[in-house]
Design a protein around this nucleic acid. Structure first.
Lengths: 187, 187
DNA sequence: CGCGCGATTGAGTAATTTCAAATCTAGTGG
DNA sequence: CCACTAGATTTGAAATTACTCAATCGCGCG
């Protein structure tokens, strides 16, 4: 279980056993059942989560009660309401389980300790943050350049597994179209 | 001019004169006239740019010849085609001057040297990358939750200066609407 | 003055949403 | 094994939103 974290980190930087032990000391394992919330809008955000297994969604609910999915998080993803986590403000998004999910929890102080005491980990997080930024920019571009059908196909190519794992309604609210429109696109 | 960079960095981390001298050694100043390209699609991306003055836009041109603006970059912003820069691949976006612009150029090796030799700078870039990631997520949410008019008003609140500095056509292609639609929204 | 760029306006068309109803499917209890 | 229910998906039709194409307007600059 912690081996999974080690493999994940070592795709970017090698760690000695000692270093890895220190890394581990900052994480707390946790399990959540399908439908439960790791973060609720309005909460203080205590952790950043590394997903070991299962599936999460990061969701924002607007005034009219519609839900909009900022992101799905599957195995080996890092997820939280990053704005709230880093700025210690109230969450504007919920983080919810779409499946039974195992995570490793990292607190903000744990994150800071890792960055300060182990430069390799700061480097690791920098790489992850850059990748996240780039991925978000790509998604923005998809909204600018592609229509609903094209965005649907992009998603289908990028994460085919999602189609098995989540209801279409949720894919629709990730893509920014109504579920009816998504249904009509599939044909 | 380099003082501007120092002030910018020291909003996040203090630097000794010696450290700052080392930082400076990795940057090359450059000036570009309105309309010129810092990066063209297809190019290798040599630099990440810190904008001292002026205004840039990061643009993607689709097959049908329409241009889509991923981002504007004004004073004190860092900009480049980050995917191409970090992965040493060909640019999929152009970076172009909307005004005469002064920048400081940082090469990938310069970036890596700063990160390796000066942990403070790695920390600085981590903070910037996180902020960039968060800002992109907010923009994604704006596409999901807001219609054209609301996105227009968000932009207007966030960057009122842009309305003085760039033609509406470009704001439209940043917001993802046609210029005609934007024109009708303004009323 | 006249050119050229940017902004606006109008009219028709295409894409998407909304609301409503019908259909399908997996899981539950009898 | 079947009937039943809740959730998910599909379909239809009307309404809305945004796009496209075309024409016009406004203004700064040579």
């Amino acid at each position: 279980m912690l081996e999974q974290l080690r493999k994940h980190i070592e795709k970017i930087i090698p760690l000695t056993d000692e270093e890895f032990a220190f890394v581990c000391s900052q994480f707390t394992p946790a399990q959540y059942k399908k439908h439960t919330f790791l973060i609720r809008e309005g909460d203080r955000v205590q952790h950043c989560y590394f997903v070991l297994s299962g599936l999460l969604m990061l969701v924002h609910n607007d005034e009219s009660g519609k839900q909009h999915i900022a992101s799905f998080a599957m195995e080996d993803w890092w997820e939280t309401d990053f704005l709230a986590f880093h700025s210690k403000t109230a969450a504007t998004m919920s983080l919810q389980c779409l499946e039974n999910t195992e995570v490793l929890c990292l607190s903000l102080t744990g994150y800071q300790k890792l960055c300060n005491d182990l430069p390799k980990m700061e480097h690791f997080f920098l790489r992850k943050a850059n990748a996240g930024h780039i991925a978000s920019q790509q998604r923005i571009l998809s909204f600018l350049t592609a229509n609903a059908k094209q965005r649907y196909e992009l998603l289908l190519n990028k994460y085919p597994a999602l189609f098995q794992r989540v209801p279409k309604t949720l894919l629709a609210s990730y893509l920014g179209v109504s579920r009816e429109t998504l249904s009509r696109l599939a044909s």
